[in-house]
Each structure stands twice: as structure tokens, then as C-alpha cells.
């Protein structure tokens, strides 16, 4: 039963954010969702199924309150102090919510060739994975994927956008522990 509710939450979050953005737990989307819920509170029958940001066991709590992503400096895969703090939170959440699996998506900004950026994104995703494993999470729960420069979040050709695109995002889902 508990699992069923979590699964419903995940599916809801996936389908809603997928409409507008490839990045499934994008913060901006989540803010929009909450605003909409406020406006439609009177007649939105699904509202209670989505407003999980205050529930520490919800994916929304993971992505918004803890933070699902860490950012990197140009051409590096070294975790920053802020990144490690975020990952400490992620590690704690994943330790508590042990039925979730994680896929770490590594991304790069558009400065760089496609192949190199794919390899760089993999380094970033792996840096996150290794950190989470070092905090006690089972390596088998965490996979990595690199999108290189194929999935930018911000589209300007300036450092303000590049900084947001050089990221590793932790995507969680209810696992089939097989």
C-alpha cells in the first residue's frame, strides 16, 4: 500500500513535468505546479496526490527540499562543497527510503565537442555515484547515464546558463529489487 502511493506520486510527477521539460524533476516546473494547485485548490481533485513537498518521504521533498542536482565548474567533475552537502542529503534520504533506486544523469554545457562532453558527463555522474556509495549506499542501487551536451536546461550561450547545465541530476524511482 505504501509502495502503491509512492509509485503514484512518482508517476504523477513524471507525467506532469514531462509535458514541459525533459528534465523530470525540474525545480521551475515544480514551482509552477504548486502555484497551479493554489489557484485550483477548490476544484482540483488530484491536489492531495501531488502536494508532497512537505512529506519527507516524497520524491518532491527529495528533488526540491534536499535538491536533486549538483553543479560543476567548467571542464571538471570535482564535487564542490555545496554539491557534497546536497549529496549528503540525498544519501540520507536514499538510506531512509530504501525501496528507491537512483539513476544519476551527467550533463555538460555546449562548450565542447559532442564525444568529449558525453565522456565528461559520465565522469560527473560517476563522481556523484561514488560519493553516494562512500556514504554507505549500495552500489547496485545507483546507475549512471551521460547526456553530454544533448539536454541543456538553460538555452543562452553565456556562463549564467552554462553553470546550470553543467550538472548531475539524481533521478529516483521505486525499484524492483531484482
Amino acid at each position: 500500500m505504501k509502495h502503491f502511493i509512492k509509485a503514484a506520486l512518482v508517476i504523477g510527477a513524471l507525467s506532469l513535468s514531462a509535458c514541459t521539460n525533459a528534465d523530470r524533476f525540474d525545480n521551475a516546473d515544480a514551482v509552477d505546479l504548486n502555484a497551479q494547485n493554489g489557484l485550483n485548490a477548490a476544484n482540483d481533485i488530484n491536489q492531495t496526490g501531488l502536494g508532497g513537498a512537505n512529506d519527507p518521504a516524497s520524491p518532491q521533498f527529495f528533488s526540491q527540499t534536499i535538491g536533486d542536482r549538483v553543479l560543476f565548474e567548467v571542464d571538471t567533475s570535482t564535487l564542490t562543497a555545496a554539491g557534497r552537502a546536497t549529496l549528503d542529503g540525498q544519501a540520507g534520504w536514499l538510506a531512509t527510503n530504501s525501496d528507491y533506486l537512483a539513476v544519476i544523469e551527467g550533463h555538460a554545457d555546449e562548450q565542447g565537442t559532442r564525444e568529449y562532453n558525453l565522456a565528461l558527463g559520465a565522469r560527473r555522474a560517476n563522481a556523484v555515484r561514488e560519493y553516494l556509495v562512500s556514504k554507505g549506499l549500495a552500489a547496485s542501487r545507483i546507475r549512471t547515464v551521460s547526456y553530454g551536451k544533448e539536454r541543456p536546461l538553460e538555452v543562452c550561450s553565456a556562463e549564467s546558463c552554462y553553470a546550470q547545465n553543467r550538472r548531475a541530476v539524481t533521478i529516483i524511482s521505486i525499484g524492483q529489487n531484482s
Partner: peptide, 24 residues
């Protein structure tokens, strides 16, 4: 974990490519 950047040899019998394991 991931494979990309493939190319054939001239005779088409071999493929060279990049493989990612543990981020490397």
C-alpha cells in the same frame, strides 16, 4: 555502462568505439 563514438574498419569487419565504465 555506456558505448558511443563507433567507426567501422575499412573492411567493415571491426568496430572501434568508446566504452564507459565507472565514469572512465
Amino acid at each position: 555502462d555506456m558505448a558511443f563514438s563507433p567507426r567501422f574498419s575499412l573492411d567493415g569487419r571491426q568496430v572501434i568505439y568508446s566504452l564507459i565504465n565507472g565514469g572512465n
